[in-house]
Computed example of a mutant assay.
Amino acid sequence: MIVVTGATGNVGGNVVRQLLDAGERVRAVTRSPDTARLPRGVEVVRGDLAEPSTLTGAFDGAERIFLFPVPSTVDSVAELAKASGVRRVVALSSSAAADQDDNPISVMHRTVERALENSGLDWTFVRPGGFATNTLSWAPSVRAESVVRAPYPDAAANLIHEADIAAVATTALLEDGHVGARYELTGPHSITQAEQVQAIAAALGRDVRFEEQTPEQARRTMVEYLPAPIADILLSYWAGSVGVPAPVLPTVEQVTGRPARSYPEWAVDHAEDFGAPS
Rank of each mutant, 00 (worst) to 15 (best):
W123T: 14
R40K: 13
P33V: 03
P140D: 15
T54P: 02
A50W: 03
T251S: 10
V244C: 05
E184V: 09
E43Q: 14
D164E: 05
S53I: 10
L159H: 12
L49S: 03
V252M: 02
P151K: 06
D34K: 14
T186M: 08
R206C: 07
G240L: 05
A166S: 11
G12I: 00
P227G: 10
D273N: 14
W138Q: 08
F274C: 02
D60V: 06
E43Y: 08
P215L: 11
R87C: 06
Y263E: 02
V4S: 00
D232T: 05
S32K: 14
A50H: 09
A62I: 03
A83I: 04
N103D: 13
R87Y: 07
W138K: 09
E224V: 05
L67F: 04
S95G: 14
L20D: 01
V90Q: 00
E43W: 09
V142M: 13
S76I: 03
A267P: 06
F131V: 03
E265S: 15
G61K: 06
A202Q: 13
Q100F: 12
A144K: 15
W266E: 00
G275T: 09
A96S: 14
L159T: 11
T171M: 08
P33H: 08
L116R: 04
A167I: 04
R87H: 13
R149T: 11
G61F: 05
L67V: 04
P128Y: 02
I65M: 10
I233C: 11
A144S: 15
Q100S: 14
A201P: 02
H178N: 09
A157V: 12
A144H: 13
E63S: 12
N103F: 09
I160E: 01
D48V: 07
P215K: 07
I233V: 15
V3R: 00
Y225V: 12
D99S: 14
L20T: 04
S76R: 15
D48M: 06
A166N: 08
W238D: 06
V86I: 10
Q193E: 13
T135A: 13
L80T: 01
V44H: 05
V74P: 00
A267Y: 05
V147P: 10
L234W: 13
N158R: 06
G85S: 08
A169Q: 01
L204W: 00
R209L: 15
N118V: 10
L249I: 04
N158C: 10
L20R: 06
E216D: 15
Q193G: 06
A155L: 04
D273L: 12
A78G: 05
V248Q: 05
V248L: 08
M108C: 08
L249N: 04
S32Q: 14
P39M: 08
G130D: 12
E24Y: 01
A91Y: 03
